Amino acid sequence: MARHEIDTGVRDAETLDVLWEQLVQALRRVNPDEARLMAQWLLEEATGISRIQRITHPKRPIRAPERAQLGAMLQRTLSGEPLQYVVGYANFRGLRLSVTPDVLIPRPETEQLVEQALERLPAKQPVRVLDVGTGSGCIALALKHERPAAIVAGCDVSEAALRVARSNAEQCGLPVTFVWADMRKPDVHERTDGPFDMVISNPPYVTMDEAPTLPDRVRAHEPAVALFAEDEPLQYYRALARHSNRLLRPAGQLLVEINEAYGAAVVACFQDHGLSDVMLHQDYTGRDRFVGARRPG
């Protein structure tokens, strides 16, 4: 289906200063607070013009192919498509990772999940880590990047997501193994070659009741399989807890990101499955966001 054309206002800009003002003005319709940041990102991706070049060469002529490329990217952004999909990548803890509509766009909260893991992982030991529901591979690749001695693997139920994760591993030069596995199935241990010293996961945790509250750019463009917990918001946490005796070595750690509304429920779930040292942690905004636990032993 053809995309409805939106007047971007950049078709006739002849010089960089005029183009910049038109670009910022257009993006204020989408995000007034971050319009200038978004504008620079689009400008650099479409034309190669850096912030310094924009400031020091305001009268630089704009070529027709540059206007066309920028206009096409701006059209997609103004239509509601997430900027990371438009430019094709997201930044995550110093890594430039390809993202497509087959994977979630990495969030700042998930960077904090990585921080929680790094606090628990020794710096120079070959510990084994599994990222369940890896998506773009952002968690697994960040952990390997910051703990080079670790042996890191990721799994997902989406073959399309695994292709993105493998491509990111290759682009980043990070030796991480990605395999197909469903944490709800009994063979997840065999498919992932456990046991592990840590299992980490940011599983789907948005309930269907919450779907209408999501921004349109998320609900319409990001993969539902990675967002929504369907009718049972704890199903993935129960599965992780159920498999923990086989996925984790004795004293191995389980660390997950959660829906803030279900912190106490996830804690109780882990405790009911015999996990110890179960702790609820908050994100930078003070919301319940992470639960850590340990297999006894």
Rank of each mutant, 00 (worst) to 15 (best):
Q271P: 00
A46F: 08
E44L: 09
R242G: 07
R246Y: 12
P148H: 09
A264Y: 05
Y85V: 02
Q271L: 12
P108C: 11
A123E: 11
L130C: 14
T192A: 06
A265C: 02
E190G: 09
T192K: 12
S167E: 12
L78Y: 07
G137H: 08
M279I: 11
I200T: 04
L97D: 03
A165T: 13
P101N: 09
A149M: 06
A140E: 02
G71P: 04
L255M: 11
G48A: 06
H4I: 15
E222I: 07
T177Q: 14
G9S: 05
E170V: 13
G194S: 07
I62W: 00
D7A: 09
P32N: 01
P175R: 01
R166V: 02
D7Y: 08
D12G: 01
D131E: 04
Q112R: 08
D156I: 14
T177N: 02
K144D: 03
Q112P: 01
V278N: 05
V127P: 01
K124M: 13
L78C: 05
V86T: 14
L234K: 08
G286I: 05
P203Y: 06
Y284I: 11
P203L: 03
I105G: 09
P65W: 01
R242P: 05
Q125E: 15
T192M: 12
G135Q: 03
C269V: 11
D277Y: 08
R289W: 00
Y237I: 03
L275D: 11
H273F: 14
A123T: 08
P250D: 15
T47C: 10
L143N: 04
V179P: 10
D288H: 11
P215K: 10
D187Y: 04
V24A: 12
A72T: 10
P108S: 10
R96S: 15
L113F: 06
T56P: 12
Q40E: 07
M73V: 04
Y89F: 15
D288Q: 13
T8Q: 01
E81H: 10
Q84A: 15
A39F: 06
G154L: 10
S98G: 02
A251I: 15
R166D: 14
V157L: 05
S98V: 10
W20S: 09
A226G: 12
E5T: 11
P122D: 01
V164H: 01
R246N: 15
I151G: 00
A153M: 10
G154I: 11
V18G: 03
L74Y: 02
V99M: 13
H273M: 13
D231Q: 06
S136E: 01
D193E: 06
V30K: 15
V30H: 05
Y284P: 01
G286M: 01
V267F: 12
V176W: 03
P122R: 01
D216Q: 14
R107A: 04
L227N: 07
E260C: 09
